[in-house]
């Protein structure tokens, strides 16, 4: 309940007690950990999406386990891979079929901005055709970045924020760099 804490007060009443909170906060909190996803996997990034869903990275740990292969039942649209001009109407239609509330994650550079396919066939970023909540750069993004993206989306859902956000490099915690340098005998600091 860490995220709802700000607006939550525990009111006395013996051992059990009860909790008050704003209804929206509770709703947002409930939503962000039960995301039903629709993977719209078109290209190479799909391989990395599988990897993120597979046992090693296990996206299910973050409350985004169940893929729903019907847009009507999904909350999050993962656009995984290049969207060609020919595919664009299909994507738009799938987005329109989803029920509110809905969020969109652009997975990979191609979905975010077209990547190096700067040509007649490719849509230069799906934000040209639908609003995007989170962009995950990388070609393809590593599964760690995918998890970051998912967590960023959850944070945004909790805050009720609908602007576009880009996943950035995560900062290593203090002291981690020295440790990595020692362990792997590499130089990470300037």
């Amino acid at each position: 309940m860490a995220d709802v804490e700000l607006e939550t007060r525990v009111v006395g009443g013996g051992d059990a007690g009860f909790v008050t909170t704003k209804f929206e906060a509770l709703l947002a909190w409930a939503r962000k950990y039960s995301l039903f996803q629709y993977p719209f996997a078109t290209a190479c990034c799909g391989m990395e999406f599988f990897a993120a869903a597979s046992p090693r990275y296990d996206i299910a740990r973050f409350g985004a386990e169940a893929p729903r292969f019907s847009p009507r039942q999904a909350d999050v649209l993962w656009v995984v891979g290049t969207i060609s001009q020919r595919q664009a109407p299909v994507l738009k239609r799938i987005y329109d079929q989803m029920t509110e509330p809905k969020w969109v994650i652009a997975f990979g550079t191609c979905a975010s901005c077209g990547g190096f396919y700067d040509n007649y066939a490719t849509v230069p970023g799906i934000d040209k055709i639908l609003p995007v909540d989170v962009m995950i750069p990388g070609c393809p993004p590593r599964p760690e970045a995918v998890l970051d993206g998912l967590m960023l989306l959850q944070q945004k859902i909790g805050d009720g924020d609908r602007t576009t956000a880009v996943v950035k490099n995560t900062q290593l915690p203090d002291g981690a760099e020295e440790k990595l340098e020692r362990l792997y005998n590499i130089r990470m600091r300037p």
Partner: peptide, 22 residues
């Protein structure tokens, strides 16, 4: 054709080595 990304056209635009990522 839903994933046509113009590989062959892009290859004509850069140097020989730039085709590798495609």
């Amino acid at each position: 054709g839903y994933l046509h990304r113009a590989f062959e056209k892009m290859a004509e635009r850069g140097t020989w080595a730039q085709v590798f990522p495609y």
